[in-house]
Amino acid sequence: MDFTNDKPIYLQVIEDITSRIVSGEITAGEKLPSSRELAVTYRINPNTASRVYAELERRGIVFTKRGIGTFVSDGNVSDLKNEKVTKAVGEFVETMRGLGLNDKEIEAELSAYLKERNQNENRV
């Protein structure tokens, strides 16, 4: 994984793990790698890896059974998904406003884009 320079590394790893949970690649109840294995996989500092799990646990996304391991919690997938959707939409709106578009224009641009894209996809 490539890390950007402007955000803490532990948050970037959290983004990646939560995306995998939302996409279904990692499922509820699944055992996650040990903190050291996580460090090796992401090529990150072992302390950063511990911080990733501590933060995921604080947010209720994973839970730890002492001596057994770290597992994905039940029932957070839809919350996580909503959170990511809100964030993505927020970023999109920020970019469009930065280009000088008002809300009506943003809506119009989006539906025009979706319409054209769907037509293209149906043609294939």
């Binding site: 320079n5 402007d6 955000k7 803490p8 590394i9 532990y10 500092n45 950063t48 911080r51």
Partner: peptide
């Protein structure tokens, strides 16, 4: 501290 540098100053160690 590398992560603190990112959090407080938005900077990597390369920066």
């Amino acid at each position: 501290d590398v992560e603190t540098l990112r959090i407080n100053e938005n900077k990597s160690i390369a920066d």
